[in-house]
Each structure stands twice: as C-alpha cells, then as structure tokens.
Design a protein around this nucleic acid. Structure first.
Lengths: 221, 221
DNA sequence: TAGGATCCACTGGTGGATCCGT
DNA sequence: ACGGATCCACCAGTGGATCCTA
C-alpha cells in the first residue's frame, strides 16, 4: 500500500480500501498528527489522502504524474458537495493566449480521482471517507467545460475582468484565490487602462461535482 | 541610525559611519548571531549590512526602493576585489525581448552603494568595513554596459546560448546561477531545437568594480 | 585566475481547500 | 446558497554572494 500506484486501476483499488474509514484512523496509520484543531484544517485532508495514496506530484504537476491523475477530495453532506472544488490558478496576464485544449485546467481535469468526505460530523477525526470515483470527462462534458473556459478567458483577454463574477460559467467559475487579502495583480482593461485585481482561480461548481459523483456522465442544469 | 534612510546622502553618511569597524562589532550591535562558522558565510555579510543600513527591499526590488539605491558589498584584498559581483538573474526565455534601457540589470546598476569589505583576514569577525562609494554609471560606462548586455542577450535570443561563456562581455558577464547543481531550464537553440541549460545570472567583473572603487568614472581595459 | 559550481536564508506564489457574511 | 474572502504548508526560485578546481 506504499509507494507510487502502478496504474490507474491500482490507484482506484487503493482508494476503495479507504472507503468507510475515518480520517482520524487514516491519520493514525501514518502516525501523522493533524493536531486536535477542528477548525484550522483547510486543505489538510487533501494533503493527507495524497500521502496515503502515494502521490508524488509537486508544484504545477498533477498529483500522480506517472498515470496522469489528479486527486480531489470533496466534502459532502446528505444533499451533495458542501463546497465548490478548486481546479487551478488562472494567470490573468496570459489569459488572452490561453486556450482550453492546451490549458492547465484541462490537463488537470482530464482524469480525476474524486474522494468524497462525509463532512457532517464537526469533529474531523470522525469524518468518513466515501466511495471513490475515477472520472474522465465525456466529450459532452468536455465541450461544456471548454465553453465556460473560453467565455472566462475571452472576457479577461478583452479587458472585461471587472465584469466577470463567479456567476459566469455553467460548471467552471472564476473566483478570488489569494492567501492574503491584500495581494494584488495588475492587468490591462478594455480601454488599455491598468486594472488592479486580486489573483483568481478556476473552480468547479458544487452542482457539477455533485452530479458526476452520482452519475459520471451527467450534464446537469 | 535605525529606520529607512531619508535620502541618498543620509544613506551615504550612515555607511561612512561603519567604515573602519569590523563585521563582528557590527553584528554584535544588532545582537545578530552569525555563529562562529568561518566558512559557510556566503551572502551573510551583504544581508547584515542591509539590516544595519535599514534596507527594506524584498524580492525583485532594489534594497532601498524609496531612494532607488542598490547595496553591494565587495570583498577586497590589497590588489582589489577578490570576486566578481552578482547583478541579477537573467531569464533566458525572455532574452529576445530584453533591452538594456528597460532592463532589470540597468535599474539595479543605476545607483549603487558599494561597500568594500577587507577580506584578507580568515576570521570574518575581524574583517573591516571599507570606505563606501555611492556610484551611478557615467554615460560612457553606461554605454559599455549596454554593449555588453546587448551582446549577451542578443546571442541568447539568436539561440547561441551554448556559444556564450563567461568570457563574453567587457564588464558584464553571464555565469551559472543556481542553488542546486541539478536545476535546468530549457530554451530554443538557433535551429529551433530545445537546449537544456542551467539558470544564469549577470555579474560585474572584478576588474571593473576594482576600477570604479579607485575612480568612479573609470573605463578600464 | 577566473570560469563554472555551489551554499544559505528567505519569501512569494501555488496547491491544498474551507470559512463566513449577505 | 453561494460568492467573495481567507487559512496553512510547502518549496521552487530569487537574492545574498563565495567556493573550488583545472
């Protein structure tokens, strides 16, 4: 169970063995101390499962570079995902040169291992790992994602970044992404003027991730 | 003596007050412990004097952004500088778009506070701080630096990075700059082929820094 | 003797996401 | 409910330069 997964099937089998276990038990297995803090845990579960499953990717790479798979944990309740899912950073200055087929976003979403985390228990140690799904977009899903992506980067490239909100896009949306509130980047607006804005990232709406967790080929809305 | 220098004159006065003192005494004043290690000290003296003089610049900025001054310490012996002086990183991929008038290198060299460190004593705590020089390139010096810069980035832009050695350039030279030996970057060669090379930085030859420390308007060689 | 190789500290940016006010 | 704001860990890259052979 240690080391790099030999194949996508191997990875999925490993993930299935985790289903039903609690995050606390898994952390104990690795002798990892996530501390008793129940609130400052943003991102820690994702990192924990990466370690458990043998992810090796760093930086811009996917989590499992050898088999080209990205791992995403998603907190769920009885009605589905509680949160949207972060995909990747979107460099605003280069948006006019970005295209979906060659984009970092598409590369990350080309094959995703989704692991739901049952998050209704406030104590994270008791939260249970759900049934994993190894997913690749259907051509129909890819087309919708491409449309959303083009709409977003097109608006940025045209200088309309200020008119863009998280409401744009059917499944993909653009949202602020900065560790510190004060960080700013600059970009040219429609009239060539300089606009200062916060760094942004692409996210998948909870509605979409909820749908594919129920039916991998779904095209919701 | 604490805080940001109010002006270039103020900075120079502060630096003059340090002349004749030892690095050990200055470190003690700030209650900075550089440890007793006499060999693993690369870069520490520069950082020490930045702190003593109230430098605030971080990252790509100059050391004293308010007064647009860069601080450089240079180890000297009886014959002049013992080492070349690092100027800045040179991004190889963007070299074809680089021009001296707008370059980062020129911005850094536009106004430099040179502080010689008498380095013949093996014990760094006994090394004495020399007489500082606040220098800006004369038009003649700037022209030579521009020529060197254009020669270097021109060769890179034309894909001749492999033909470039540290021998190119009268005062400015290109040299490897990487913390870890194994780091590589890639760039297009003359025939469009991909060339892998180590990250590079621009350096001022010791011959040049030695000449301007003796005579700020010198044009050596 | 100087060209090519390397060392240390620090931090900005990215990747992991969830928090929380309206 | 969800759009906008924020939190933590990590590390690659940068900035500070000097080391070390041939």
């Amino acid at each position: 169970m240690t080391g790099v997964p030999a194949s996508r099937d191997d990875l999925l089998l490993r993930a299935r063995r985790l289903a039903g276990r609690t995050l606390g038990a898994v952390a104990d297995d690795l002798a990892i101390d996530l501390a008793a803090d129940t609130v400052r845990t943003k991102g820690k579960f994702g990192a924990l499962l990466e370690r458990v499953l043998g992810a090796t990717g760093t930086g811009a790479a996917r989590d499992f570079p050898e088999i080209e798979v990205e791992l995403k944990t998603v907190p769920i309740g009885s009605r589905g995902p509680l949160e949207s899912t972060y995909v990747c950073h979107l460099p605003l200055a280069d948006a006019d040169r970005a295209a979906w087929p060659t984009s970092w976003a598409r590369a990350k979403l080309a094959c995703v291992l989704w692991i739901p985390i049952w998050a209704e228990d406030a104590d994270w140690r008791r939260r249970k790992i759900g049934r994993p799904l190894l997913w690749a977009p259907t051509p129909e899903q890819d087309a919708v994602l491409a449309h959303d992506f083009d709409e977003i980067v097109g608006a940025i490239g045209a200088g309309h970044v200020e008119g863009l909100t998280a409401r744009t896009g059917r499944w993909l949306q653009l949202r602020p992404k900065a560790a510190h509130g004060g960080v700013r980047t600059t970009i040219r607006g429609a009239d060539g003027e300089v606009v200062s804005t916060v760094p942004k990232g692409l996210y998948l709406r909870a509605r979409f991730t909820g749908a594919i967790l129920r039916d991998p080929g779904a095209c919701p809305e």
